[in-house]
Amino acid sequence: MEGRTTHTYGTAILSAFEYLLENYPRVFVIGQGLWSPWYVGSSMTDLDKKFGVERIIDTPVSESACTGAAVGAALAGMMPIVVHPRMDFMLYATDAVVNQAAKWSHMVGGQAHPGVTIRAIINRGGEQGAQHSQALHSWFAHVPGLRVVMPATVADARDLLVASVLCKDPVMYIDDRWLYDQTDDLPPIVESDLRLEGPKCLAEGTQLSIVAAGHATRLALDARDELARQGYSAEVIDVRVLNPFDPERIVQSVLKTGRLLVVDGGWRNSGFSAEILASVVERVSPNAMKIPARRITLPDAPAPTSRVLEKAYYPTSDTVARSALDMLSRS
């Protein structure tokens, strides 16, 4: 189609960076590996060459100071993006994110807002082990004042990054290396207001609502195709924005289908999957449910290393389809 560009999820992120750096002089990027961005797939290639090392700042091995610096630069009028090539290492920066960025507006009476974007990449599998694997979106979505977004589609990979950086509030943008090879044809960028973004229906259906975020949404979409082949109609709702969380679109879907399956790439206990379930329980009468809701999550264990154990650890689209079929066949 005219005006459309073919992107992978990775190059979609790159195009968002380029758009922001070209159009907003206050944007700069800080993080480890930015002058040799082999850590981050195709998502940041040559930004330093195009926009200069003053604005694309490769840093010492200091997640905490660099994230704090991005928060401080935001307070000083910049629009910083701090990049954490792997979310696990970002835990060193938790104070800057949770104690400083997320609370700043409230603590100072709404008179200043650190509009920093914290890009946290989920990068797992490939026998990388327990500290190269974590999806900690649930932790951060728990913190008021921190907006948390998880793009599942190629379009959102680009457009939610643009919206995050344009937002005045601190935003954690969580992308997933397992999604980088997806492709789509995207129209030119249209800026959107992150405050108006929320859960979205990616595929309509009538018999089952599958709700997911990030890579889990991909699993849900693939499972939906399998269900369709077997004659069932499932609806897929992509959460997209985990905090502040607006469950309205999810509730609408469940009221229509009477069946809810939640898929989450994080752990089960106190995880975001529980928030989705709770938000439906609070709003939908048990009488409207044809079968109790279910969720698919990681087992409550750190990620294993060996490939055999990894295979057992991570849910697949087949896991989702089997659970969905079981729900549909029982009700």
């Binding site: 905490s64 100071a65 704090g68 928060v71 401080g72 935001a74 307070l75 000083a76 910083p80």
Partner: peptide
């Protein structure tokens, strides 16, 4: 670190 960032800014 926030002050360092304000200085970088």
């Amino acid at each position: 670190p926030l002050a360092v960032g304000a200085g970088i800014a």
